[in-house]
């Protein structure tokens, strides 16, 4: 026990002073090298032509069960800016990835629902904190994938942060606002309270990327559901970055699972999956054949379905319209007597 602690302390120390450590190593190594290779002092080398530093790019992967795997299919697709400029290769999620994501969500759901509402609220608030800290990064990403100016990117990040804060505050109020004590005509105690429906599949809208994703994920998880969300096409870039925010916000792995790729390919598998309890069609075109077909598939195990709305304003006050469809009402009776 004490040894482990010591080792941890050492690691922590090393982490704290990475620069100092590296410098010390370099200082030690340098004289030895000089001894072996070149005993005589040499003239200073001619200055090399300045090489611009190449940036280290990020590989955009999926976010499933708290990890960032590539698609099991090995597929990727090119995310470009509206101008056509290359931004990244994103993982193109497959049917198998969708199933893995549902399984991860199912495994995480009971634990998430069991967490206290206070705890869930703090974790949602933590997501807002982490998002705020990465404000610049998200504003740039939104600007590049949506082809809007950076100011608009900032405005969207701010709206998304505020939305996480709004939902964070709801976690420990839902039961009071949506529940009831029922005055039945008899000697019974009778109370109704909201409970999560289980695993929810979400088709996020293509635009606004970050705010749209936030606006479907946050209301579904605040009440204790676990979700699988499909971020369509270019939304993959801010979506995967949001996954990084979640991974560092104490959100248990599997509560939110992010798939990137083509909704038309992934949605049918999620809509017909018998271990999915509800479906939000936000990102599917309202009135389309696909929207109807997905609702038909969802009927097989009577999923709760939120239909897409044409021209929905993602910046408007969302109320509880996306919270309530994913909550069940449970009513408990008990006799009263002595």
């Amino acid at each position: 026990m004490s040894e482990t602690k010591k080792a941890e302390t050492k690691k922590a120390d090393a982490k704290k002073t990475p620069k100092a450590g590296k410098a010390a190593k370099a200082a030690k190594a340098a004289p030895q090298a000089a001894v072996v290779t070149s005993p005589a002092p040499s003239p200073a080398p001619a200055p090399a032509p300045a090489t611009p530093r190449s940036s280290v790019r990020k590989t955009y992967k999926l976010y499933i069960g708290g990890a960032f795997p590539r698609s099991e299919s090995g597929r990727s697709y090119v995310v470009t800016a509206p101008s056509g400029e290359f931004i990244a290769n994103a993982a193109q999620a497959s049917r198998k990835d969708a199933r893995d994501a549902v399984r991860a969500a199912r495994s995480a759901q009971a634990g998430w629902a069991k967490a206290t509402a206070y705890n869930r609220g703090q974790i949602l608030y933590r997501i807002a904190e982490m998002l705020e800290e990465r404000r610049d990064q998200f504003a740039q990403q939104i600007a590049s994938v949506e082809g809007v100016n950076v100011a608009a990117g900032y405005a969207q990040v701010d709206a998304a942060v505020d939305r996480w804060v709004w939902y964070a505050g709801w976690s420990d109020k839902l039961t009071q606002v949506l529940g009831s004590a029922n005055p039945v005509a008899g000697p019974y105690w009778n109370v109704s309270s909201p409970e999560p429906t289980g695993v929810v599949a979400l088709l996020a809208p293509a635009r606004p990327t970050l705010l749209g994703l936030t606006s479907v994920v946050a209301p579904a998880i605040v009440g204790g559901n676990a979700v699988v969300v499909v971020a369509p096409d270019a939304a993959a870039v801010p979506a995967v970055t949001l996954g990084e925010v979640m991974a560092t916000s104490d959100l248990p792995g599997g509560v939110v699972n992010i798939l990137t790729g083509a909704p038309a390919e992934l949605a049918p598998w999620l809509a017909s999956h018998l271990d999915v309890n509800a479906l939000d069609l936000a990102g599917i075109q309202a009135g389309s054949t696909l929207a109807r077909d997905l609702e038909v598939s969802a009927a097989e195990n009577l999923k709760r379905v939120v239909r897409p709305a044409a021209g929905y304003d993602w910046s408007a006050d969302p109320g509880l319209a996306r919270v309530k469809p994913f909550l069940e009402t449970k009513t408990v009776w008990h006799p009263v007597g002595i």
Binding site: S180, N182, P183, V184, A185, G186, Y188, N190, S192, T197, N277, N301, L302, E328, T329, K330, T331, V332, W333, H334, P335
Partner: peptide, 21 residues
């Protein structure tokens, strides 16, 4: 959707009724 504890099949207009799954 409805749990009866130490009773069963009780109904009342004030008491919400309906299912999960």
């Amino acid at each position: 959707g409805v749990v009866w504890a130490n009773t069963f099949n009780r109904f009342d207009p004030t008491s919400p009724f309906g299912g999960y799954k």
